[in-house]
Design a protein around this nucleic acid. Structure first.
Length: 584
DNA sequence: TTCCGTTGCGCG
DNA sequence: AAAGCGCGCAACGGAA
């Protein structure tokens, strides 16, 4: 069963059932495994729209229908509607996110950067100019002292539709058109991608709702220990004591007492005056130098980073009630990876993870996919040799014999192949890899060639990379010289080379998330963090074992869904820990 | 004052 | 300057 939904303001809304088309067995709607979230979107045959129901309390209506029918919900934008449902205590199993799917389909037509709105999807369908609403929709304003403001229930969202178009009708129309495309034989896996992306959107909202447990007192203690007491709030900008002290000692040591270490330009000048010429002030370059000022500078940079990125202001802005609640942007990266907004969620440094502690009686299950990208390369390229190595727990060790038992060479070479590194020693390793694993290296080489030539590449499930920009075309045609043209050509080659691997890996992770949230439905345990190839679950201690099994099963299911039958294994590293920092 | 490109570093 | 991908964020510093 499917219901199409549009939220009006004030908590009201409209719903309509979509009748199954002739010959469409309700049975296969469930697809993979009923309720697991990766079930296929409905078949494309024309459907009938049942009677439109107008309700004053949309949350309640959805709650009841979910309990009674467990339908797939067809709505414009999960990120806009689902948080309010979650706050009302309503969870749903399955949805079809029309704007996310539209973004995927638009990308396949070479269209990027349109706003994520129903209006944009509608405009595309009707060859109308795309309305210019915020690219990422209504962003939550970060967080001054008051923190994010609670918005009214179902804010009248700016759909960007022409005034005369009824949003519910537009939704149905766009959805119908999407099903037609998804059902075309060209890329059957697109249906899976659409379902997984939609399930991901549900998981993202649920994770934001749950939040990552983080003990603010513990984090503040850690800050004080490293930086000194918190500087007075509101006064003149002052560094924490230990940071200030370090800055002063550094100034002395380098012979520029007034040096501001936060200014790369000043640091460069001071280094030069101290007889330490450097091109940049990057840490790796500094580390090569022998000078008493260098360790001070490196220490300053590290602590300063902690202070500015995850210091007391970060804590005030992003941690509420013992939970860190970042906003995830599903498909926010061109490759299909998620991005995040606010609080630097996907860069949570090790120091902060020390304060990520489970509730009393609860624990974390942390699962990360080891060596995901080389395994994905083995799977998508069908390279038999690499696939054989990818059956092992440690792929790089298995590959070591290719390089005289040197695991690190295997790792360097393979990463270089996926990123397009050609310089130095890695270039030589690559030649060896190409000989031993011609299909795998050939696969990424071909993707790179396509990129250099301005062509499009696709991920395993059919997500398209962006076409060359106008600027790229201009530069490639030699407007700034042949070497510049080569440079931008090769740069795009590295991008497309990596796109096919990173993007397909993102699809595996998405399928895992989608499957896993299905398995966890009805349990206390919940997903609280997702980081590209790693998930964190917060669960009652006595559910931990069950959760570990659920993650393991989900990883296997993700492999099957995305890659079909492949000899490649995708082993998980599992850790059951009270503190995130202990998951190694 | 505000805007914006650059720099550098955190994560995968 | 080197030449390995994708991000978000904060600070700097020059331009508007």
């Amino acid at each position: 069963m499917r219901w199409v939904v549009h939220a009006d303001d004030g908590g009201a809304g409209r719903l309509a059932p979509l009748a199954e088309a002739e010959g469409e067995a309700e049975g296969d709607r469930g697809g993979v495994a009923a309720g697991d979230g990766v079930a296929r979107a409905g078949a494309a045959a024309a459907f009938g729209v049942g009677e439109v129901r107008r309700v004053a309390d949309l949350c309640s209506a959805i709650r009841e229908l979910e309990a009674r029918e467990g339908p797939r919900w067809i709505w414009a934008d999960t990120a806009k509607i689902y948080p309010d449902l979650l706050r009302a205590g309503v969870r749903v199993a399955r949805c079809h996110d029309v704007v996310l799917v539209d973004e995927i389909l638009a990308a396949r037509e070479g269209l990027f950067g349109a706003p994520r709105t129903l209006g944009a999807a509608y405009a595309r369908l009707h060859d109308l100019p795309v309305p210019d609403v915020g690219r990422l929709g209504a962003a939550t304003e970060a967080a001054g002292a008051e923190g994010p403001l609670q918005e009214a229930l179902f804010e009248p969202d700016d759909t960007g539709l022409p005034a005369e178009v009824d949003p519910l009708s537009a939704l149905i129309e766009v959805y119908q058109a999407q099903l037609t495309v998804l059902d075309s034989a060209a890329a059957p896996a697109l249906r899976l991608l659409a379902a997984a992306e939609s399930a991901g959107a549900l998981a993202a909202a649920e994770m934001t709702h749950a939040g990552l447990p983080l003990d603010p007192r513990l984090h503040a203690e850690n800050l004080t220990e490293l930086l000194g007491p918190q500087p007075a709030y509101g006064g003149p900008a002052t560094r924490p004591a230990k940071l200030q002290d370090l800055a002063e000692r550094l100034g002395e040591a380098i012979g520029s007492p007034t040096l501001n270490p936060d200014s790369p330009a000043q640091v460069l000048k001071a280094l030069s005056l101290a007889g330490l010429p450097a091109a940049t002030t990057r840490a790796w370059e500094l580390r090569r130098m022998e000078h008493p000022a260098v360790p001070l500078l490196l220490e300053y940079k590290e602590l300063s980073r902690l202070y500015t990125a995850n210091g007391w202001s970060w804590l005030r802005a992003w941690v509420r009630g013992g939970r860190f609640r970042p906003e995830y942007v599903v498909g926010g990266v061109v490759t299909g990876r998620w991005a995040s907004r606010g609080g630097g969620a996907l860069q949570l440094p090790a120091m902060v993870r020390k304060a990520v502690v489970s509730d009393p009686g609860w624990t974390f299950v942390v699962a990360d996919a080891g060596q995901l990208e080389p395994r994905v390369l083995a799977a998508i390229s069908g390279d038999r040799g690499l696939a054989r190595a990818a059956q092992a727990e440690d792929l790089y060790t298995e590959l070591g014999d290719v390089f005289g038992g040197d695991r690190s060479k295997a790792k360097l070479g393979l990463l270089g192949a996926m990123y397009g590194q050609t310089s130095g020693e890695v270039g030589l390793l690559l030649a060896t890899l190409r000989r031993r694993f011609p299909a795998a290296i050939g696969y990424v080489d071909e993707a790179a060639k396509a990129g250099v030539e301005g062509r499009i590449v696709h991920t395993r499930l059919g997500r398209a990379c962006p076409p060359p920009s106008a600027r790229w075309n201009r530069l490639v045609s030699g407007s700034e010289g042949e070497s510049r043209a080569d440079q931008v050509r090769n740069s795009r080659g590295r991008f497309t080379r990596n796109f096919v691997v990173q993007g397909s890996a993102a699809e595996w992770a998405l399928a895992l998330i989608a499957t896993l949230r299905g398995k966890l439905a009805g349990h206390s345990s919940e997903l609280v963090f997702f980081l590209h190839d790693e998930v964190v679950l917060h669960c009652p201690q006595d559910e931990a074992e069950q959760v570990r099994e659920a993650v393991t099963a989900s990883a296997a299911e993700a492999s099957r869904l995305v890659f079909g039958t492949t000899p490649v294994r995708f082993p998980l590293h599992l850790a059951t820990v009270r503190c995130y920092a202990d998951a190694k």
